[in-house]
């Protein structure tokens, strides 16, 4: 699928920050082929038979882990799910020891999610296996950004020049950060919308436009990317109540009508209906939320394929 023989420069994908525009495009182009595979009756190719992929998740996750697992299985790899509660970590084994053990078991690719930013980077330095970041703290979630870019490409056939609004908790969202890097590298015009408590002005690139008002920020937008309000977050108090959040930053049909006609609505899931988005929008024809889920498998297959191919 990478007929051109192009390759990724590094053995790992720990962040979009480290990827060039060419590399991102290579992944997106490769994903097109896998999306076609997923549309066949038999959704499986023998491409990576004999390779071993380990899902090493230190944070609860259903959709991302399942998506990676399915992507790996569609490529005919052997997949092991290694969840923290069942591991030696509870017995006091260090993070690096755990990862080294997994490598010694023969893993070619380790997919890691951790609540601390930088853990995938640390393991990438210690392991010969490829490391894929499936979300680290509040830093990055690169495959989510890749699948989002892929989904946008499917509809618009381009990203350059599109106006894309990311709405909500930018401060804590690794999805938002990876998307900002990815979309800007690909030439989109990115703007952020939300309360100032969740968009730290001084910390954001000065040429990214920040809006505190949905009514102003959504004007002429091609793509609205909603973020999940993380209600389980311990450190609360970024806004008074979910009622007030909805009143000012919830995506309603009225607000969506301010964007370009037919603007695309995205959400990485899981959604809080009635808090950041109303059902009428989430279930509207403009919503691509379920396409995102499907495309996630194709994008992750592309990443697994390219990282394996790299070492022949």
């Amino acid at each position: 699928m990478s007929e051109t023989g192009q390759q990724l420069r590094n053995k790992d994908i720990v962040g979009i920050k480290d990827l060039s525009c060419d590399e991102i495009e290579l992944i997106l182009n490769t994903a097109v082929g896998f999306r076609d595979v997923l549309r066949r009756d038999i959704k499986k190719v023998p491409t990576l038979r004999g390779k071993t992929v380990v899902n090493l998740f230190f944070e609860p996750s259903t959709r991302t882990r399942t998506s990676f697992e399915l992507a790996a299985k569609r490529l005919s790899t052997d997949v092991i799910n290694f969840s923290v509660s069942a591991s030696s970590m509870v017995k006091g084994e260090s993070l690096i020891d755990t990862a080294m053990t997994i490598q010694a078991l023969g893993a070619d690719i380790v997919i890691i999610r951790h609540s601390s930013s930088g853990v995938p980077h640390l393991l990438a330095r210690h392991l010969n296996a490829s490391v894929i970041n499936a979300g680290d703290g509040i830093n990055e979630h690169p495959t989510q950004a890749l699948l989002d870019a892929f989904t946008i490409m499917e509809k618009y056939s381009r990203i350059k020049g599109l106006k894309i609004a990311i709405v909500g908790d930018i401060l804590h969202s690794r999805v938002a950060k990876s998307n900002i890097y990815c979309l800007r590298t690909l030439g989109a015009e990115v703007r952020l919308i939300g309360p100032p408590t969740l968009i730290p002005e001084g910390l954001i690139d000065p040429d990214i436009e920040i809006f505190h008002s949905m009514e102003e920020g959504l004007r002429d937008i091609d793509v609205v990317m909603m973020l999940r309000i993380q209600m389980e977050r311990q450190d609360r108090g970024f806004f008074p109540t979910t009622d007030e959040y909805f009143r000012f930053w919830g995506l309603t049909l009225e607000r969506l009508s301010l964007a370009r006609p037919g603007a695309m609505v995205m959400h990485p899931g899981p959604m809080n209906r009635g808090i950041e988005i109303v059902s009428a929008v989430a279930d509207s024809p403009q919503s691509v939320i379920l396409e995102q889920v499907t495309n996630g498998i194709a994008a992750r297959m592309a990443v697994l394929y390219l990282l394996s191919g790299r070492r022949g």
Binding site: R236, G237, F239, P240, D243
Partner: peptide, 14 residues
Amino acid sequence: TKGQKGEELAEMGM
């Protein structure tokens, strides 16, 4: 803050 208790923000926007 709610109830002037200094614990949680009140609904300032509303």
